[in-house]
Design a protein around this nucleic acid. Structure first.
Lengths: 207, 207
DNA sequence: TATCGCTGACTTACTAGTTAGTCAATGGAT
DNA sequence: ATCCATTGACTAACTAGTAAGTCAGCGATA
């Protein structure tokens, strides 16, 4: 039990603690229904303390979104490091996507907050698009174009629209957000089916 | 200008008018931030009038969700009426899905409300699953199974997971909800790419 | 004129944001 | 090592504003 934190240490931790608590509250109640006092209460601290670190509830919300969006910077590097045939790399890319998006509760709930509050906080949408969505789509597009150039992938409409290749990962994320544990899906089977569909399609192969 | 409505006619219309107005307000502001007074104001009527028809704000919200979910009953019939090869019918089914889900603003915004408020109104989720999601998935699954049985579709993991076949429609819907008109997608190309991917996959066909 | 859909002022309850005051940690002096 | 003046993170009680829900009365309709 390390109840012994110096003042400086405690002060340095506060903003992080507050943002973590705020994220949980905003996820659970939404922006409007969240009370700043309840955010503080999660830390055993009063509303006044929260207002020492964040000037308004809006600023707290935007900082909270930035706080959980931060750990995305490594995704781009992971994508460039993939090895193997284009099919292999695409498979790995999709698995990575499931891990970071559908598999990570914080990322999932971030998507919920974007949908729920995005129209009132447009800048969180724009930031997320520039920092996460656009680079990811560019990486998928580049990978598919390489596969087409090498002859491994066929030249079809799907090759120019990377969204349709990754969209099942979005679907699973939304499913988990809406149904939580009420209508669970077998995720391993789902992911396998997705990869099978992306690579092979539905039509029987002629020989 | 038909300002001449009898009292009985006006009274019969009121609940519908209120629900239409409430839907717009809830979509724009979310449940918590919506003011009952503003719902009334859309009709040029005061808060008191709204409370003559709905006992609480919560009841108004649940009735609003039920109001916009209502017109789904015909979807099932449309699916059963499809004609042609299994590929043709699947294509028509997907086009129908885009039309009813991504293409219809009310349905799209209903999805947003489910995501945003579902955790505080669980029954709207359960109703929607039973009345819309489950029947749709069953129809897609049945169609794919018939295609596999006939030899037109190959027997793969995707055949048992109808979600991965329709998920691009969900993706486009989410995209439109989040980015509205800031990052528009060419929808015709998107849908074409989706159908191409579902039928052919990415791998080049051997000859 | 009797009815009744509607009004709008009112009550009640709640919350964002403020600020004067508290007290425990700190660190220099002895 | 001990004392103690100072700091500053935090609190608690406050203001000001807002919104849900109520109801006595109004006035157009039939």
């Amino acid at each position: 039990m390390e109840k012994k934190l110096s003042r400086a240490e405690q002060k340095a931790r506060r903003p992080h603690e507050i943002l973590d608590a705020a994220f949980e509250e905003f996820v659970e109640k939404g922006y409007a229904a969240t009370r700043v006092e309840d955010v503080g209460a999660r830390l055993g601290v009063t509303k006044g303390t929260v207002y020492l670190y964040f000037p308004t509830k809006e600023a707290l919300f935007e900082a909270t979104i930035g706080h959980v969006s931060a750990p995305f910077e490594d995704v781009r590097a992971s994508i460039d490091a993939l090895q193997g045939s284009h099919s292999d790399r695409l498979r790995q890319l999709l698995l990575l996507g499931y891990d970071k998006l559908a598999g990570d509760r914080k990322t999932r709930e971030l998507l919920r907050l974007q949908l729920a509050e995005g129209s009132r906080f447009p800048n969180i949408i724009d930031r997320h698009y520039g920092e996460f969505v656009a680079p990811l789509l560019d990486a998928v597009r580049a990978l598919i174009e390489q596969g087409v150039a090498s002859g491994e992938f066929h030249q079809g409409a799907a090759a120019s629209m990377p969204e349709v290749v990754i969209s099942s990962a979005i679907h699973l994320t939304i499913w988990k957000l809406i149904f939580a544990d009420r209508n669970p899906i077998d995720e391993a089977t789902f992911i396998e089916a997705h990869i099978d569909l992306v690579l092979n399609g539905l039509l029987a192969r002629r020989r």
